[in-house]
């Protein structure tokens, strides 16, 4: 089994953090894992995406030809990557700011208005974690417990204050997905 996921959006949306947190939690669960970032020279507002491969066998190529999951946080990402997703794959859309929908019939689409949901929680910066809640619920790559524990470790002691809001954000996203 190898599951490949592409996270994509603007620099500053926490796109790379989504990938890093998934890669680290999958590693903690004992999977083979690769995390491959790609970002522009600009820190904020540029393009950012990363590919995470998780498998119970050695991962040959960290570059994904046909990802099983695509998470898009802005419109350009949807247009760039929707055609790469494998048939039967799933696209997660930040529907707060993306009006367009995939033009493919052979993929599942899950709309999560994560930017609006983050504002409701009082912190626009946790939109990515809300999306991760939805993604973990649907993909079941790792358990929510492992993911949250790992997220706290990555955030480190400097951002302990964020741990609580992250936990809340994750729960909101996780519960947003009904089976």
């Amino acid at each position: 089994m190898i599951v490949k996921t592409i996270f994509s959006g603007f620099g500053g949306q926490g796109v790379l953090m989504m990938g890093i947190s998934l890669a680290n939690s999958a590693m903690n669960k004992g999977y083979h894992v690769t995390y491959l970032p790609a970002y522009g020279a600009e820190m904020r507002g540029g393009t950012a995406n990363c590919t995470v491969a998780v498998g119970d066998e050695e991962i040959a190529s960290p570059v994904a030809s046909e990802p099983d999951y695509l998470i898009v946080m802005n419109s350009p990402s949807l247009f760039s990557f929707q055609n790469k997703v494998s048939s039967g794959g799933t696209i997660f859309i930040n529907s707060s700011i993306i009006d367009a929908r995939p033009n493919r019939q052979d993929v599942k689409t899950i709309c999560v208005p994560c930017a609006d949901m983050a504002l409701e929680l009082g912190n626009s910066r946790v939109a990515n974690i809300i999306m991760m809640g939805a993604f973990i619920k649907k993909s079941d790559v790792v358990s929510p417990e492992i993911y949250l524990k790992c997220l706290e470790t990555i955030m480190g002691s400097r951002k302990k204050a964020l741990a609580e809001i992250n936990r809340k954000a994750f729960a909101v996203g996780f519960d947003y997905i009904k089976d």
Binding site: I20, A23, H32, V33, T34, Y35, L36, P37, P62, V63
Partner: peptide, 9 residues
């Protein structure tokens, strides 16, 4: 650049 920025255990 890929080897440099990629993360692996």
């Amino acid at each position: 650049g890929m080897m440099g920025q990629m993360m692996e255990p």
